[in-house]
Design a protein around this nucleic acid. Structure first.
Lengths: 238, 238
DNA sequence: CTCCAATGGATCGAAGGCGCTCCATTGCTG
DNA sequence: CAGCAATGGAGCGCCTTCGATCCATTGGAG
């Protein structure tokens, strides 16, 4: 009649995980940093007005402003008052991220594999509207043209664009999360020009397959692309 | 220098989504209901002690107890005091779930496709420990033996077991979430014996492929299995 | 029979977060 | 040059949630 609660069924552990990601303030800061680090809001770019942001994040304006004030003091953003004022992203900001442990690395890489290969396949299987096709090509061009400074930001945007192409908000959100975790890992290893060239070629293969509507090829190309990054990370962080 | 915030970049929407799932109390209730509905804690089974649960859920005991009291009044659980007391799951409880809209259906089914096919492939690609192999066979047998009353619970457990077999906590958690959303959809359509037989055959194919270590076959079998459910749902809820 | 350990039950003060309202600044518009 | 609109800045009272502590109940252990 009673369960063996000692080793605790892994299914239970999955369901009885923490309900809230902790402090609302910290979580808000984390989100804003995500947007900056992923390059979704580029350096110099303007964040949405506080009233809109707080509403989107489901957080009071008071809390949002506390988060923004902290980011201001840490030099990530800058606020200007008055009409046509706003909050702006300041620097490319190379913040040191905490080094994750081995289990967390495998967890991140495995979840990433499932989500990104799935997204690539699904994007290829859909009939993409012209605007989406343009966006994909644009992100690909940006990533190819990016020097070492902007590479990871444009790379993140390209991968996010693929997720968006599936028109599945949950999938995009999940992938944005895992991407943030991945960037935390990538921050700990050097960016080698040879890898960059290699990645660009793979990106082109992936996007071509998606635009061609070849789901199998898109999945395979993505899998190969991810394997490269995964091997690199395991090598540096093992 | 400023962003086109009007239609709002979908990537921004993905990042600037709500920080907290709302009320801590409601979220806690939802989690407990998940555990009950997914059959992770079977009818008559005992929940972990309040102190442990509140700690796992990252919620104060006060809040957890409020949630439990609500579930008690709705007849889902029952509490007994004293040593060897505890909180126990009461009935199979057929609660009516709110009907989701069309976009939510596609969102759920698409995310599910990405996660479940990924999980099947990854589980097959791993070298599974004996205990995991046994667990998979056990869940398969339970689902096959289950009558119409217990089918969806055992089915949920089987799919969760596949996710657990990947040894990737994030993936298991994500899949548990999407499964809950799926069950909300399934609750709105009838369970047809013919589908049940068909599903059981597909389950066997999937598990066999996983135990054989045939990743490609596992993915394909899972994709076919999901297509059946998806078509059924689209048919009934379109 | 007594004690004890494990569980649920209850209360209180402190902190976090929210909704609301009003203020301050700025630059375009007429 | 005066007004206005859009933005950031700041304060107040309320509700939720938390952490800690103590109480109540129960059944086995000694």
């Amino acid at each position: 009649m009673s369960l063996p609660n000692d080793p605790l069924d892994p299914a239970l552990a999955a369901l009885f995980r923490p309900v809230r990601a902790g402090n609302a303030l910290e979580e808000t800061m984390e989100r804003m940093l995500q947007a900056i680090r992923l390059g979704v809001v580029p350096p110099g770019g303007q964040l949405p007005p506080e009233r809109e942001l707080s509403s989107r994040l489901g957080v009071s304006r008071v809390t949002l402003r506390e988060a923004l004030r902290a980011l201001q003091e840490s030099g990530h953003v800058e606020s200007r008052r008055g009409r046509y004022g706003g909050t702006f992203v300041r620097v490319p900001s190379s913040d040191p991220l905490p080094a994750p442990d081995r289990d967390a690395i495998e967890d991140t890489l495995t979840l990433r594999y499932a989500l990104e290969t799935g997204a690539a396949e699904l994007a290829a299987a859909r009939s993409l509207p012209p605007a989406t096709r343009r966006h994909l090509r644009g992100c690909l061009a940006d990533a190819s043209a990016a020097g070492i400074d902007h590479y990871r930001r444009t790379d993140s945007r390209l991968h996010l664009a693929i997720a968006e192409a599936t028109a599945t908000p949950s999938l995009t959100a999940a992938l944005a999360d895992v991407r943030t975790r991945l960037n935390a890992l990538l921050a700990a290893i050097p960016l080698i020009p040879a890898n960059l060239t290699h990645s660009n070629a793979q990106h082109k293969t992936i996007i071509d397959a998606i635009l061609d509507g070849d789901a199998t090829a898109a999945r395979a190309a993505m899998a190969e692309h991810l394997a490269g990054t995964a091997a690199l990370l395991r090598g540096f962080l093992a």
